[in-house]
Amino acid sequence: MKITIVKVGGAVVEDPAQLTSLLEGFKKIEGAKILVHGGGRRATKVAAALGIESKMVGGRRITDADMLEVVTMVYGGLVNKNIVAQLQAIGVDAIGLTGADMNVIRSHKRPIKDGIDFGFVGDVDAVDATRLHTLIDVNLTPVLAPLTHNGTGTMLNTNADTIASETARSLAQTDDVTLVYCFEKPGVLANPDDDNSVIPTITRADFQRLTANGTISGGMLPKIENALAAVEAGVKKVVITKADCLGNNNGTTILL
């Protein structure tokens, strides 16, 4: 089966016009599809309103007990259900899920490394592709929030790019999978101030070089790391592009 997995970033989720464009493009994708969403900017705003400081390291959020409550509410509730409602409004029969629902994504708490404790952040152990197929096979479109669980009752904040990559990798064992990362830029840029400086292709060697010279940094680091992992695990195609370019082959293609 051909399956397209689209990951949409928090900046797009925050902008009604960009989100509407993305969802309309998503609807037009033929065949089975899954949407994975972020929502970090909304979580940061809600946390600030509650007097909770947001801390980031290498583009990833440190999640203490208070922040875990915020991201669970924002990702699993506010953002996820708004997207599901908008998809239903345009005729896409969507169902919103966290990793705990149907035991779709199990993870473990990230261990402390190099003195950095990310708190309640999950590293994915397994994505149950069979369970996802039970939904896809009855023409439902899963919408995955960036939350997983550890199997003993604890939710874990998990990078949405990672969830998209791990889901693609799991499904690629039996299906023809395309993974598309959509965000506010037209691709990975050589010059962050110039939207015309899209890097057309990136390999593992390119990534190492571009990271070393500072071209790629911050939140783009985990995105490309996950994109490369997906390609290396057999995902047929991985593209990083702008929300309104979904389906037109523009953007940055990740290659072996």
Rank of each mutant, 00 (worst) to 15 (best):
Q88L: 15
V143G: 12
T167V: 04
N103S: 14
V92M: 11
S165H: 00
V71S: 03
E69N: 12
G96N: 07
T63Y: 06
N159C: 05
I105C: 08
V121C: 05
T154M: 13
V124G: 01
D123G: 01
V143L: 11
D123I: 12
G119M: 12
I105Q: 04
R106N: 03
I90Y: 09
N82I: 02
T162V: 06
D137A: 13
T148R: 01
I105H: 02
V121H: 04
D128Y: 04
Y75D: 11
T154P: 00
G77H: 06
N139V: 09
L156R: 08
I95K: 05
N82S: 11
G59R: 07
T141A: 13
A168G: 10
I136Y: 01
I116W: 09
L144M: 11
L156G: 07
T72R: 13
R131Y: 06
L132C: 11
I163N: 03
D125N: 09
A126M: 11
D101R: 03
I62E: 14
R110W: 10
A129V: 04
A168H: 00
R60W: 04
I163R: 04
I105P: 00
D93N: 14
A145M: 13
E69W: 05
L68V: 06
N80M: 07
H149E: 15
E69Y: 07
D66P: 00
I163C: 04
A126H: 09
I112Q: 11
F120S: 12
G151V: 06
G122K: 04
V71N: 03
V127S: 06
A100H: 08
R110A: 07
A65R: 15
D93E: 15
Q88F: 13
V121Q: 07
S107R: 01
V121S: 02
R131S: 09
N82V: 03
I163Q: 03
Q88P: 00
V121E: 05
V138C: 13
D123K: 09
N139T: 12
T167D: 03
H108V: 10
I90N: 07
T148L: 11
D101E: 12
N159L: 10
G153E: 04
A65K: 15
H108S: 06
T152S: 09
M155G: 11
I112S: 05
L140Y: 14
N159P: 00
T141W: 04
G151R: 02
S165C: 07
T148P: 02
D64I: 06
Q86E: 15
T98M: 15
M73N: 01
A65G: 09
I112G: 02
D161C: 00
V127W: 09
T148K: 03
I105A: 09
A168S: 14
R131F: 08
I62A: 10
T162F: 01
V143W: 09
M102W: 07
L147R: 05
A89D: 15
N82A: 11
